[in-house]
Design a protein around this nucleic acid. Structure first.
Ligand SMILES: [Mn+2]
Ligand SMILES: [Mn+2]
Ligand SMILES: [Zn+2]
Ligand SMILES: [Zn+2]
Lengths: 150, 150
DNA sequence: GCTAGAACGACAACCATTCTCACTCCTGAG
DNA sequence: CTCAGGAGTGAGAATGGTTGTCGTTCTAGC
């Protein structure tokens, strides 16, 4: 019977592609062991230190594969560089438009409520991950920008 | 003028800075008249066509001022360029990690529920705007990536 | 009119990312 | 085993949006 389902939320998706090759698995492992988001260059350097070097171009290629496989998420910092993290680490940020600092924000807009991200809205689009960010002024930059600075 | 503001929620914030100068007001006007997000270069060219040219560096400077004043929002496209829109236009997107296409997503994670963006969470951070994006594969790229392609 | 400081604009510099292309490695056929 | 084909790789060049530099122009105050 077609009962009124609580709208099957379509995010937190299943992997699409077959498991990636060994190079990509190494990338994923390093990302999982790191406690934070890593840039492509950091990843490249960490691999180098671990005697498993991969050319920077290869790192970028691998990260793109992992994204398409639904294993890695990515966001761009204000300074232009992209940072990567495992998909299962669901983390968002407060980012200062002035100094670019970015600190964790312990909420997720899709977390509890579900938000009703139905297939109707997605219309054939296959979601892999989401980004949510609040941009504004950090406490320090507010003071520096304040009119009466003393 | 004074648009209805629905929100007890802490986002959709009040302007912080004094009203910007005439150059910035022109930028804001063009952004409001355009039906879509504009890049700095597009803005520069539109102003040129309207006999109100501003150097590209000045356009960037003005956009940063408008952001800090709580009048303009900004997001980065996959190809690296930033696009700008008036703050009151609350729009989010589905973005393809493969081809970079980005189509509107008619929901906002802060819209109805409020999400509980309390001052406790923000801890002195002054929110100006937010970005929310679902990244994945558009219908076309799913087909091209499919295993049995025919 | 004159001066100090802010705003401006043309252009150079920056730098993360992507592209190029020669080379290596793997695989399957013979 | 030998070899051809193709995918994967890596070093370096190219790309391009954004930011920095710095001499010029505008503005306000006297
Ligand atoms: Mn989340
Ligand atoms: Mn919104
Ligand atoms: Zn700041
Ligand atoms: Zn696509």
């Amino acid at each position: 019977m077609a009962r009124a389902h609580p709208a099957p939320v379509v995010t937190a998706t299943l992997p699409l592609s077959p498991p990636p090759g060994p190079r990509q698995q190494r990338l994923l492992l390093v990302l999982r062991e790191a406690g934070r988001e890593l840039s492509a260059r950091e990843l490249h350097q960490l691999l180098e230190a671990a005697q498993e070097q991969q050319g920077l171009a290869t790192v970028y290629r691998g990260l793109k594969l992992l994204q398409r496989a639904g294993l890695v998420r990515c966001r761009r910092l204000v300074n232009g560089e992209s940072v990567y993290a495992p998909l299962e680490r669901d983390q968002h940020h407060l980012t200062c438009v002035q100094c670019g600092s970015s600190e964790p924000l312990p909420i997720c807009p899709l977390g509890g409520s579900g938000l009703g991200l139905t297939k109707v809205l997605l219309q054939g689009f296959q979601p892999l991950f989401h980004t949510f960010e609040i941009h504004g002024l950090c406490a320090r930059c507010q003071q520096l920008q304040a009119p009466g600075h003393g």
